[in-house]
């Protein structure tokens, strides 16, 4: 039960969506874009979010794409996590999507919704960070395609009225050796203590994390440490733990010290697994 009223709009085109959003905003109705809605509904119920209107983007064809366009994989923001796992075009992304919430929820949570989540994990961004994905954003000036790093800094940073339409990923990444490690406090279905995932490309290992800090991230200096062949695996792990110790969080799911322990093990395991690939 949501104890406040809002208006519901389901535009059929990108332009309609942006227009109605900006109009509602102007009218002071605090609109929000609406994907799967799971987070908005649960937060609205407990009173931690309120809004006067929702703009549901699930009927916009551009947001529903899922497939290849020449050398890129296109992933619409309104496709569900289940769509991703069932199609399984990008195994790393499928693994990621398949470990967010539970299976039934994956049928409702959208790709864009997860990326734009206010909950700190946003795990679907990790494959995008690793593949230098490009994001298409709709706004009052039409569509803009940008490198992920330009709009995703800890979280998705869009201007008022803008929303994510799709992500595109270069095909070459889809076949690269990858790893996906999600460690939780105890349960399979839970927020991550640490999610570490990565790709090995031209002998170089890329890595990105969620759960470790209060935002998901991929950092060049961490990757350099990871690939520093002058050091033993455990030395590299120690160095990374040391470098990240300032941002590692302590919460209900695990203390910072324990996260460091798990991180170290995880990095060594990853390096061991990748060494022959």
């Amino acid at each position: 039960m949501i104890s406040f009223d809002f208006e519901y709009y389901r535009p059929d085109t990108l332009k309609e969506a942006v227009d109605i959003f900006l109009k509602l905003d102007k009218e002071g109705k605090s609109p929000v874009y609406y994907g799967g809605g799971t987070e908005l509904i649960s937060m609205a119920r407990v009173g931690s979010q309120s809004f006067g209107a929702v703009v549901d983007i699930k009927n916009i064809p551009e947001c529903k794409v899922l497939g290849f366009n020449a050398d890129t994989l296109c992933l619409g923001s309104a496709i569900t996590l289940s769509d991703i796992t069932e199609a399984n075009y990008f195994p790393l992304l499928s693994k990621t999507a398949g470990r967010i919430a539970d299976h039934t929820m994956q049928g409702k949570i959208t790709f864009g919704g997860n990326l734009a989540s206010t909950i700190i994990y946003r795990e679907t961004v990790l494959p995008l960070l690793l593949t230098n994905a490009r994001l298409t954003v709709a706004g009052k000036n039409g569509l803009a395609e940008v490198e992920i790093g330009q709009v995703f800094k800890e979280r998705l940073r869009l201007q008022k009225g803008e929303f994510l339409v799709k992500a595109t990923i270069d095909k070459k990444f889809l076949i690269a050796p990858y790893f996906h490690v999600k460690k939780t406090k105890n349960e399979k279905i839970d927020y991550p203590l640490i999610t570490a995932e990565g790709l090995k490309l031209d002998g170089y290992v890329r890595i990105a994390f969620s759960g470790l800090a209060s935002y998901p991230f991929r950092e060049a200096n961490i990757e350099n440490m990871l690939n520093d062949s002058s050091l033993e695996f455990s030395q590299r792990a120690d160095k990374i733990v040391q470098a990240l110790s300032g941002v590692i969080t302590s919460d209900l799911y695990g203390s910072a010290e324990y996260r460091k322990y798990v991180l170290k093990n995880t990095i060594v395991n990853i390096l061991e697994t990748l060494k022959d690939q």
Binding site: T38, I41, K58, T104, M105
Partner: peptide, 27 residues
């Protein structure tokens, strides 16, 4: 739980399971 955690409210939408506590009726 009305929070999508327990599944007691699951219904099928076009044959797929959905937690009806986290779906707007209008959807």
């Amino acid at each position: 739980c009305e929070n999508g955690d327990c599944g007691a409210c699951t219904v099928l939408i076009d044959g797929w399971p959905v937690k009806s506590c986290l779906m707007l009726t209008v959807e």
